[in-house]
């Protein structure tokens, strides 16, 4: 059994756990805070304005919450004027939809024919043994969900295990423990030495040329980019990972998804603006000077991953 972790950001209400102040005082894992029910009508309306097909919306909700909360299905059925039994029927028909909250990491073990003959059953039972749950369940600390699938279409690489969308091939039962440890440390932990595309950048303000790096504060083990942001009536600091390709950040305030941020230099208080339109959402991007020449542009809309490096 893995060591029980301290309560981490699991609350999925605004998917903004790292800056949520409530979570700091939580004594046990929570799925939703009090704002949950207030947020659902807004979320569903927001999604409906982009899409008007049931499955597409269910997919969006699933992406947002990692599962389909009962309240969202009711809200969707009411707004789309589809009987709830049909929404529920669709949600239960497809295996990619889950009505039960899933853990932070989803482990899918392939039990298809090709994987099965190479001992996938042993891998699956080893996972069950290590995590102390049955397939289809979630660990009590809401870290892992285990499921078995019947084929992932990569039979030549079997036995296949997919963890958080990452494929692991030729998995053996003795590798399971190591895999779990790797995942709990975080697959998102970027190995800079291995990945050529990921490198740290050092940036400065395009107006006053003052460096924006904060050396004493590390994100992804590198000094972070420290800027100030304002949105609505809030104003505060915002720290970005300086690794190009990493989207980790910290913020003083909780920033709802899809909010467009106004970003300022903390030294000269100029608004950092005037880049290209974001390739993903067409918002005007924020420009910063890269030490060594060139500019880096990032999209100021929370949740958008649009960025350009111009050297």
């Amino acid at each position: 059994m893995l060591a029980k972790k301290e309560v981490q950001g699991i609350c999925t209400t605004c998917r903004h756990a790292s800056t949520c102040t409530r979570l700091k005082f939580a004594t046990e894992p929570i799925w939703h805070c009090d704002e949950f029910e207030v947020k659902i009508p807004n979320l569903v309306e927001n999604l409906l304005s982009k899409n008007n097909k049931l499955i597409a919306i269910l997919e969006d909700v699933q992406n947002y919450y990692n599962y389909l909360p009962e309240e969202t299905l009711k809200e969707i059925s009411g707004r789309m004027k589809i009987p709830l039994k049909d929404v529920y029927g669709v949600a239960t028909f497809y295996k990619s939809f889950s009505l039960k909250p899933r853990g932070k990491h989803l482990i899918s073990v392939c039990l298809g024919t090709a994987c099965h003959v190479r001992g996938a059953q042993a891998v699956a039972s080893e996972f069950e043994k290590q995590l102390e749950i049955k397939a289809g369940d979630t660990t009590p600390d809401k870290e892992f969900s285990l499921e078995t699938v019947n084929c992932l279409g990569a039979c030549a690489l079997g036995p296949i295990v997919v963890i958080d969308g990452e494929y692991f091939s030729s998995v053996k039962a003795r590798m399971v423990k190591q895999l779990i440890n790797e995942v709990s440390e975080g697959l998102g932990k970027i190995d800079i030495k291995k990945d050529q595309r990921i490198f740290p950048v050092e940036v400065s303000c395009p107006r006053c040329n003052h460096t924006l790096m904060k050396l004493e504060h590390l994100i992804d083990n590198y000094p972070c980019i420290h800027i100030t942001v304002s949105f609505g009536r809030k104003h505060g600091w915002y720290r970005l990972s300086s690794l190009y390709g990493s989207f980790n950040f910290e913020s003083e305030h909780e920033i709802p998804l899809d909010t467009k941020l106004n970003i300022f230099c903390p030294h000269c208080h100029t608004e950092l603006i005037g880049g290209y339109a974001c390739p993903e959402c067409r918002t005007t991007m924020v420009t910063m000077i890269v030490r060594g020449g060139g500019t880096v542009q990032v999209c100021p809309r929370r949740g958008c991953k649009g960025h350009i490096l111009d050297i």
Binding site: P83, L84, K85, D86, Y88, G89, T92, F93
Partner: peptide
């Protein structure tokens, strides 16, 4: 009423 329907598969 549309109260009952098919679920799962």
């Amino acid at each position: 009423a549309s109260a009952i329907g098919f679920a799962n598969r």
